[in-house]
Amino acid sequence: MASNNTLVVPHAHAALDQMKYEVAREIGIAIPQDGYYGDMATRDAGALGGNITRRLVQMAEMQLAGRASR
């Protein structure tokens, strides 16, 4: 079975990675330096993912609002 985790914009990976570190720093979660998330608490991982999703939705809403006002 193929993975559905492919990015629509391939070079967006770096921007998403940067956002992950920014959001983690804002909410006080330490990102593992070795890249292994197996020791991260489920609550922290969920908070991180939820905040990233919230930020992405806000960005999309702002873009759509900008297009609608033109």
Rank of each mutant, 00 (worst) to 15 (best):
M1E: 09
M1G: 09
S3A: 08
N4W: 09
N5K: 15
T6R: 13
T6F: 06
L7N: 09
V8W: 11
V8Y: 11
V8T: 15
V8C: 13
V9P: 06
V9S: 03
V9G: 07
V9A: 12
P10A: 03
A12T: 11
H13W: 09
A14D: 14
D17E: 11
D17P: 08
D17F: 06
Q18Y: 10
M19W: 15
K20T: 14
Y21K: 13
Y21L: 06
Y21F: 10
V23C: 01
A24K: 04
A24F: 00
A24Y: 03
R25H: 12
I27P: 03
I27T: 01
I27Q: 03
G28W: 02
G28Q: 08
I29P: 02
I29R: 00
A30M: 04
A30W: 03
A30Y: 04
P32D: 08
P32H: 10
Q33P: 06
Q33D: 11
Q33H: 09
Q33T: 07
G35Q: 07
G35R: 10
G35E: 10
Y37F: 05
Y37N: 10
Y37V: 04
D39V: 05
D39A: 10
D39K: 15
A41M: 09
T42P: 00
R43M: 07
R43P: 01
D44G: 08
D44I: 02
A45S: 02
A45W: 08
A47H: 03
A47G: 06
L48S: 04
G49H: 08
G50M: 05
N51M: 00
T53D: 04
T53Y: 01
T53M: 11
T53W: 03
R55A: 01
R55E: 01
R55F: 01
L56I: 13
Q58D: 03
M59W: 02
A60H: 01
A60W: 08
E61P: 07
E61D: 03
M62Q: 10
M62G: 01
Q63S: 04
L64T: 05
L64H: 05
A65R: 13
G66V: 01
G66A: 09
R67V: 02
R67H: 00
R67E: 11
S69R: 13
R70M: 01
R70L: 12
